[in-house]
């Protein structure tokens, strides 16, 4: 069967037409992935979901402060795009960054501790929810000025080409950031310099409370924007982790061959508000309910069981282990010390 991935024609052919072995959530007959790979993708999506639920609970408890943007609903996009990456590849993302951090394998305890603002956090409590970093894992940040992360990723990809590392840089950005001038500027320069950068547009339909169609002229699709730069683009169902992974694998393979930047638009959705404080007055519950029917954290494990890839017990055991991991992360964060006041002046200058 065909996946939901489709390609637009660019300078030299098609980007991401999936193979016959591809399977989408619950409808295909086989996949190109091993059972371990398929279960690992589920584990990561479920871990992200439970981590985010725990974040919300601890925000309500007052233990997490500031702005909290949850990735609930978008898990398949983060997991599917990070699965094909190597240790040498950079990841740059936006402020809704917990999901990418977890999919990249950042320490869950230290991630939660960062949200709690504790000394044991990834950034020693100086970054917070919107600014998760782990340079050792080439996770180069959540960034909180909309679109501001695009040129950072461009520069990292430039360094990979300059140093001939064969690595690639994946940059996540939302539909809102496409209205910044940097969107055009970065697309243009990435194409001029032919850097190994994968633009991953997470189109969840809303820039904060502004629906795409209220603030964007022309087509609601974004992948068609980039042909004029000579950048090939694919559009993929961001709720379908296998389709996302396949599209990314093909793109990454081409990036490593030095073909220049590529672009994936993942159509996805967040079931929750922009931030924890968002009452979602700007949209109705019908839309959320409709998307929830395709919730990857629900639909995907049902598919694995239905197709005899995993047993329900295996799924349940995996969930139980993740639940414990999240409880432990919250415990670790809550029991971690606050930063010392004299650390205030550390880490300003190298």
């Amino acid at each position: 069967m065909a996946s939901r991935t489709k390609a637009t024609s660019g300078k030299s052919g098609k980007t991401s037409k999936s193979g016959d072995q591809a399977a989408s959530n619950g409808t295909g007959t086989s996949t190109g992935y091993s059972k371990d790979q398929l279960l690992e993708m589920y584990r990561q999506m479920y871990l992200i979901r439970q981590f985010e639920v725990a974040c919300g609970e601890n925000y309500a408890r007052g233990l997490i402060r500031g702005f909290l943007h949850l990735y609930i609903g978008q898990e398949a996009t983060g997991v599917g795009t990070i699965a094909p990456l190597n240790d040498d590849d950079y990841i740059v993302t936006h402020y809704r960054d917990h999901g990418h951090a977890i999919a990249r394998g950042l320490d869950v305890n230290r991630s939660m501790a960062e949200l709690f603002g504790r000394k044991t956090g990834l950034s020693k409590g100086k970054g917070g929810s919107m600014h998760l970093f782990d340079a050792a894992k080439k996770f180069m940040g959540g960034h909180a000025i909309v679109g501001g992360q695009l040129p950072l990723a461009l520069g990292l990809a430039f360094s990979q080409k300059y140093l001939d590392t064969k690595g690639v840089t994946v940059c996540y950005f939302g539909d809102g950031s496409t209205n910044q001038g940097l969107y055009h500027e970065t697309l243009n320069l990435a194409a001029v310099w032919k850097v190994p950068m994968l633009f991953v547009l997470e189109n969840n339909g809303y820039g904060m409370g502004s629906a795409v169609e209220r603030v964007r002229a022309g087509s609601p699709d974004f992948y068609t924007d980039v042909e004029k730069y000579g950048i090939e683009a694919a559009v993929v169902d961001g709720m379908d982790v296998i389709a996302v992974r396949e599209a990314t694998e093909q793109a990454v393979k081409r990036l490593r061959a030095g073909d220049g930047p590529l672009f994936i638009e993942a159509k996805t959705f967040r079931y929750v508000g922009h931030s924890y404080a968002d009452g979602q007055k700007y949209r109705g519950s019908e839309e959320i309910d409709e998307w929830r029917k395709r919730d990857p954290v629900e639909v995907y494990p049902q598919m694995l069981v239905k197709r005899d890839i995993a047993t329900q017990k295996e799924i349940d055991d995996l969930k139980a282990a993740v639940d414990e991991e999240v409880v432990a992360a919250v415990k670790f964060a809550e029991e971690s010390p606050q930063p010392d006041p004299d650390e205030l002046f550390d880490d300003i200058y190298a």
């Binding site: 695009l150 040129p151 430039f158 360094s159 940097l182 320069l189």
Partner: peptide, 23 residues
Amino acid sequence: DTPISEAAFLGAGIGAAAGGLRP
């Protein structure tokens, strides 16, 4: 030679520096 895109090429300099170069 860059295009007239100060924000993008300065930002790319930041990324290149973070990636181990000296822009």
